[in-house]
C-alpha cells in the first residue's frame, strides 16, 4: 500500500492511500485525515476522506503548497500507528427491491446498459453467479455494508460490502450515464453500493428504493433535525428487504414524523472483523436487534 501525493491545482493536495479498495486503505485515509483535522493547520478549508484516498483544500495565500505537502507527509508518518478501531453505529435501511420507480427509469435508459434484455438486478445477479433476483436480494441484504465515503452529491454514502472479496458483488457502471435517477435509489457500481440522496444523473446499476430520506435541506424530518445529512464515513448499514405495503406505510410514517430509523451504537475493530467476518457481522446485527 504505497501512498501517492499529487497537487490538484494550486488549492488542493490529493492523496491516494492505495490504488485498490480495501478497508485497510479506508482506515489509513481516516487516520491521516483525523490527524490533519486535529493539527489545525492554518489555511486548510476542506478535509475530505474518501474510499481509499483523501483530499485537502487549502488557501495558498496562507500556506505554501510545498509546506502543506510537508505537513501531510509528517502526519502520514505519525498516523501509521493509528488503531483501526472506531466507535460508530449500525443503521437499518429498509429497501423495496425491484420497485416500480427504478424499474421505469432503467427501462427508459435501457440502450445505455450492458444488457438491454434484462433488468439491472437480473444482470448483476447473473454476472455474480447468484440465483436470480431472490438469490441477489439474499446476498445483497445478508451482510452489513461499511460507509467508506460520503459525497458525489449531498449526503450520498458509498458502501463497501463487509464480506470476503470473492463474495463481494461487483457490477460495471452503465455504458453511458443516465440523466435521471429516482431519489433514494439503492445503486451499485464497481464494488460500491450507494443511496442516491437526491434525484439526478447517475451511472450505477439500480436495484431498489428506500422510503427513508437520508438528506433534508429543510431539516423538517425528525431524525435529520440536528444535521441535514444522515451519513458519516465509518457508519455501518444493514439493508432490510421490505414489501410494497411496508414501503407505503413507511413513506407516510416519515411524513407524519412517526418514523425513527433503527440504529445502535457499536465499536468496529478491523482486526477483529478480519479474523471472523461472518461471526463479527452476526454480533453487529445482534446489536441492532438489541442483543
Amino acid at each position: 500500500m504505497k501512498t501517492r501525493y499529487s497537487y490538484g491545482g494550486d488549492e488542493h493536495i490529493f492523496v491516494e492511500c492505495d490504488e485498490e479498495m480495501s478497508l485497510e486503505a479506508f482506515f489509513k485515509s481516516l487516520s491521516i485525515t483525523t490527524a490533519v483535522r486535529k493539527a489545525k493547520i492554518k489555511g486548510v478549508t476542506e478535509i475530505c476522506p474518501a474510499n481509499a484516498s483523501f483530499q485537502i483544500k487549502f488557501d495558498p495565500d496562507k500556506i505554501k503548497p510545498s509546506d502543506m505537502l510537508k505537513e501531510l507527509k509528517l502526519l502520514e508518518k505519525a498516523a501509521r500507528k493509528g488503531k483501526s478501531t472506531i466507535k460508530t453505529r449500525i443503521i437499518e435501511i429498509p429497501v423495496l427491491y425491484n420497485d416500480p420507480w427504478t424499474h421505469e427509469t432503467l427501462m427508459r435508459f435501457r440502450e445505455r446498459h450492458q444488457d438491454p434484455n434484462s433488468t439491472d438486478i437480473e444482470y448483476t445477479a447473473r454476472i455474480n453467479n447468484l440465483d436470480g433476483v431472490d438469490g441477489f436480494i439474499k446476498a445483497h441484504s445478508g451482510a452489513p455494508w461499511f460507509v467508506s465515503m460520503v459525497g458525489f452529491v449531498a449526503g450520498l454514502p458509498f458502501l463497501y460490502q463487509m464480506v470476503d472479496r470473492k463474495r463481494q458483488i461487483q457490477s460495471p457502471k452503465y455504458l453511458r450515464p443516465r440523466t435521471d435517477t429516482p431519489k433514494l435509489t439503492v445503486g451499485h457500481g464497481g464494488c460500491f453500493g450507494c443511496i442516491y440522496s437526491v434525484r439526478g444523473a447517475g451511472g450505477y446499476q439500480m436495484f431498489g428504493i428506500t422510503p427513508m430520506p437520508i438528506y433534508d435541506p429543510n431539516q423538517k424530518i425528525k431524525y435529520l433535525k440536528d444535521f441535514m445529512c444522515l451519513f458519516k464515513p465509518g457508519d455501518i448499514v444493514k439493508w432490510k428487504p421490505i414489501d410494497r405495503a411496508e414501503y407505503d406505510h413507511t413513506v407516510v410514517a416519515v411524513e407524519k414524523g412517526r418514523f425513527t430509523p433503527r440504529m445502535a451504537d457499536v465499536t468496529f475493530s478491523l482486526d477483529e472483523f478480519k479474523k471472523d467476518m461472518d461471526g463479527y457481522n452476526a454480533k453487529l446485527m445482534g446489536a441492532l436487534n438489541g442483543r
Binding site: G9, E19, A50, N51, A52, K57, M149, G151, K173, G190
Partner: peptide, 10 residues
Amino acid sequence: NIVDACYPYG
C-alpha cells in the same frame, strides 16, 4: 475508472 475518489474544484 478509478476507485471512487474526491474531485478537486477545477
